[in-house]
């Protein structure tokens, strides 16, 4: 589904990604772990199409299409979703409006009719209940005045409504207490199916107790240094990220 080949990228004149290779197949959940500054978030943003992140080499295909040739909005409509590490607040733009516009943009691209207003509200309410979000969400601006945890729940809510083929979740677990982590994880798990894939970008192994990955990768210095199964995450937790960089040197 997603094939990243030798991807390099630069942010504000600095090379961050230095040849990333990764393949994610439908039905799989991958975790990308790594120390701070290793390029995890850059990878997520580049995949989502952030314009000021300059791709300097390599290629990415998504369902066989050249992902890098598409603007961000078309990537989203093609079924890619980025859950932001720091979701931005947009006062004055209502949460529900944004979500409805997003869903309709996707439906339009797929040649489907716009969602019925009544059905849409029902859908949102149902997903909000699942995510244990308060009714006030409906009337508020996008992430406006939300706590860190509420913002992350909102990211997952958007994901559940948009039902992406590929979800990239950038540190969706950071800043969550254990109850919120369970809710967010349940949200992600509910989306797991043989046709979809999830890439979890995370700093901690904790999330992977709730969302069990098929593969774990360690990103360090702009490259994937190590890949393995779930036990790699547990080993990292025991031995720390230094272990990966040291084992490379050795």
């Amino acid at each position: 589904m997603l094939k990243i080949t030798d991807l390099s990228a630069r942010v504000a004149g600095k090379d961050i990604l230095k040849g990333v290779n990764l393949e994610v197949r439908a039905g799989e959940v991958h975790a990308i772990m790594g120390p701070n500054g290793s390029g995890k978030s850059t990878l997520a943003q580049v995949l989502a199409g952030r314009e000021d992140y300059e791709v300097t080499g390599g290629s990415v295909t998504f369902d066989g299409r050249d992902l890098l040739a598409l603007p961000a909005e078309e990537r989203a409509r093609a079924g890619l979703f980025l859950g932001f590490q720091y979701p931005v607040e947009i006062p004055g733009v209502n949460n529900v409006y944004l979500l409805k516009a997003a869903l309709n943009a996707k439906r339009k691209a797929a040649g489907e009719p716009e969602v019925d207003a009544y059905d849409f509200l029902n859908l949102i309410r149902q997903k909000m209940k699942f995510m244990q979000m308060s009714e006030s969400f409906l009337t508020r601006g996008v992430n406006e005045g939300f706590s860190g945890g509420e913002k992350k729940r909102n990211e997952v809510l958007q994901m559940l409504v948009l039902e992406p083929r590929l979800a990239i979740l950038d540190e969706t677990d950071s800043g969550l207490d254990i109850d919120a982590l369970k809710v967010v994880s349940a949200g992600v798990n509910s989306l797991r199916d043989p046709k979809r894939a999830v890439v979890l970008v995370t700093h901690y192994q904790r999330l992977l107790d709730y969302i069990v990955p098929d593969q774990v990768h360690v990103l360090s210095g702009g490259r994937i240094m190590k890949s393995g199964d779930r036990s790699l995450a547990q080993e990292l937790e025991r031995r720390g990220y230094d272990w990966v960089s040291q084992s490379q040197v050795a």
């Binding site: 989502a48 199409g49 952030r50 314009e51 000021d52 603007p71 961000a72 909005e73 990537r75 989203a76 409509r77 979703f81 980025l82 932001f84 979701p87 931005v88 947009i90 006062p91 004055g92 733009v93 409006y97 944004l98 979500l99 516009a101 997003a102 943009a105 996707k106 691209a109 601006g141 996008v142 958007q158 948009l162």
Partner: peptide, 28 residues
Amino acid sequence: DPDMLFYMLSRGLDRDTAQSLLVYAFLA
């Protein structure tokens, strides 16, 4: 704000729609 704009684009909104919504929000 480029972050706001990117957030909306990453949700699949047209660039024109996203910009207009931001302008509109600015006037709120």
